[in-house]
Amino acid sequence: MSEDKNRSGGRPDPALVQRTRKQQETLGAGLRHMFDSVVDEGVPDAFADLLDRLEQSESDRTTEKGDGHE
């Protein structure tokens, strides 16, 4: 009863393995292409400005804390 009835002798169908492998390769290539295109887009100016302001704010807070405790 513990035997899996969907397997024939414990070996997968070679045609199924080949199709699955090809599908994985196709999916992997598509994901790499999509990732690369997102990386190449760059950061929008508004987002870069926001990051700069956040960094400046954090720097100002660190400086204020340092001056108050010395």
Rank of each mutant, 00 (worst) to 15 (best):
S2A: 13
S2K: 06
S2W: 00
E3F: 02
E3P: 00
E3A: 10
K5T: 10
K5H: 02
K5D: 05
K5G: 07
K5W: 01
N6F: 08
S8F: 08
S8Q: 04
S8K: 06
G9M: 02
P12W: 09
P12E: 11
D13T: 07
D13G: 01
D13R: 09
D13V: 06
P14G: 13
A15K: 13
L16F: 15
V17P: 07
Q18H: 05
Q18P: 02
Q18C: 03
R19G: 01
T20F: 11
R21L: 09
K22R: 11
K22S: 04
Q23S: 10
Q24H: 11
Q24Y: 12
E25H: 07
E25G: 03
T26R: 08
L27I: 00
L27D: 14
G28K: 04
A29W: 02
A29G: 03
G30L: 15
G30D: 11
R32N: 09
H33P: 01
H33I: 05
M34T: 01
M34H: 09
M34D: 12
F35D: 03
F35E: 00
D36G: 10
S37V: 09
S37Q: 12
V38D: 15
V38G: 13
V39R: 01
V39K: 03
V39P: 02
D40W: 03
D40K: 12
D40S: 14
D40T: 12
E41K: 03
G42F: 05
G42T: 12
G42R: 00
V43E: 04
V43K: 02
V43W: 00
P44K: 03
P44G: 04
D49L: 08
D49A: 07
D49F: 07
L50E: 14
L50P: 02
L51D: 13
L51R: 07
D52Q: 06
R53H: 15
E55F: 12
E55W: 07
Q56K: 14
S57N: 12
E58S: 06
E58L: 14
S59C: 05
S59E: 09
S59M: 12
D60F: 05
D60K: 12
D60C: 01
R61I: 13
R61G: 01
R61P: 00
T62V: 08
T62H: 10
T62N: 03
T63P: 00
T63Q: 14
T63Y: 12
T63F: 11
E64V: 15
E64D: 10
K65I: 15
K65N: 08
G66Y: 14
D67E: 13
D67W: 11
G68A: 02
H69C: 04
